[in-house]
Design a protein around this nucleic acid. Structure first.
Lengths: 255, 255
DNA sequence: CGACCTTTTGATTGGCGTCAAAATCTGTGG
DNA sequence: CCACAGATTTTGACGCCAATCAAAAGGTCG
């Protein structure tokens, strides 16, 4: 297999974001041992496709900066966004029965990643059971969030679902990408457009727009181009049955 | 914490189903080492609640026989079934940030399980990286199936979603619970009623019924009380965009 | 046999989709 | 700084899928 043609070497010598997700759990002085497993730093531009669903891949990666969407297409041309990845997330390790990564990955903003080839991940697990446990925790955390989205899509109205989506992303961005939060204005950089939100929730962008207009009228949010401010967090959380505790650091099954 | 009041000791001396999910991957002659980690065999009757969402639990388990549903409730009283568990599945290891198991578990038929307390699972992982890897694989497999269901709920019509649900369960039952397949009639024992299917797909049982009537008229399926026969597998798979390869043995990320 | 649960059917309603077009914004190049 | 192409957001009219409400019919199990 070949690395995606968009893949370019990047100068990450001044990267400040660590592989929080994968190595955040282990002892500080152990972090350097993980350096030897870091295979390659790369960057992508907004719109680049990092991977196409159902094709081979032999690495996973940590997202350093930017924002990715993971999604699937159906034959009828529709798209379901499965997950929005933010800095610190560990991505690309979920292979299906064929060993393929079952979803496509696209950068919605300029993004930098750090690769770990599968062979090395396997070695890491063999040599360090702390990281193995951490990897299990991360996968579990993924599952839990995924199940929350099932609730969203299955049982909530479009209005409730959108309230949840906004609160989830708003909260995660404040935790995982604090630079995108403007302390003065209270605005965050919001990476998704209305079409993306629609494909996350399984409804049309026209309907998304109508709900957003209502949210604005009700004074719950204000937003412009890729900017969003949540004016009434509590109300929006109520509408969406959003539980902030899900956004905190993943639970450590093994402390 | 206490084990659920419904929990009863069971005589599993003649259990024929192994912990396929967790230990199926490791060398046969290593299986016996896992014996010492098996903590407790228990059984439940149809309708028993094994666990209530958002409460503590300090064990996970393999389902030996029967059928469980994992689900969440919303305040408005609706229920979303997240997953149907069949024999061999490893259940109950997905804790949220609070360390709680985030879904309820109910037996839909009489069921037998085999417990593993968290402490022992941790030990297993420390002592045997094969099982650690297997545990990662299982969690990944869960995520992949969960994402498939997101597609179902987000992008498919009720008809397409039901076709997928029937094919998924039909296929999994034939693999994981072969005794429930009648070679002569071609019927399987189908554990869900129409209300359960409705709560899996996020639609009403009235609408489920209307679709089932149509499927019968079209000669795609026939079904009676907890019995189901898929007459035209190919057509039903097409309608639901069902891919049989997802049902096979979970992918081994590390062989 | 009777209580209860599940399935089936009908009539009506409403949320969201579809189609279409206008308005606004964005980034680019002259 | 302005002009322009293209993307994104906004608005309106109309239709359909699935929800809701209600009740009957059929099956299951004690």
């Amino acid at each position: 297999m070949t690395i995606n043609p968009h893949l370019k070497d990047a100068d990450c010598s001044n990267c400040t974001v660590r592989s929080r997700a994968l190595f955040g759990a282990i002892n500080k002085d152990k972090v350097r041992i993980t350096q030897k497993y870091r295979d390659k730093h790369c960057y992508f531009s907004a719109g680049d496709i990092l991977h196409r669903e159902k094709s081979k891949i032999n690495y996973a990666f940590t997202l350093y900066s930017g924002c990715l969407i993971l999604y699937n297409h159906l034959e009828n041309g529709t798209r379901q966004i499965l997950r929005v990845s933010l800095p610190g997330d560990f991505v690309g390790f979920s292979r299906n029965n064929e060993g393929d990564l079952p979803y496509s990955i696209q950068a919605v903003t300029d993004s930098r990643i750090c690769l770990f080839f599968d062979d090395n991940i396997s070695k890491i697990i063999n040599e360090n059971s702390d990281i193995a446990k951490r990897l299990i925790d991360l996968q579990i955390n993924d599952s839990v969030l995924c199940q929350q989205r099932l609730l969203n899509l299955g049982q909530k109205t479009a209005t409730e679902g959108l309230a949840y989506l906004i609160m989830e992303l708003y909260s995660r961005i404040r935790v995982q990408s604090p630079d995108d939060f403007n302390q003065v204005t209270g605005e965050i950089f919001f990476p998704l457009n209305q079409a993306d939100m629609a494909d996350s929730l399984g409804i049309t962008k026209v309907h998304i727009n109508r709900i957003i207009v209502i949210f604005k009228e009700q004074g719950l949010i204000s937003c412009g181009h890729k900017k969003l401010k949540v004016i009434n967090e509590q109300k929006l959380s109520e509408i969406g049955s959003f539980d902030i505790s899900l956004i905190k650091e993943p639970f450590r099954h093994f402390s």
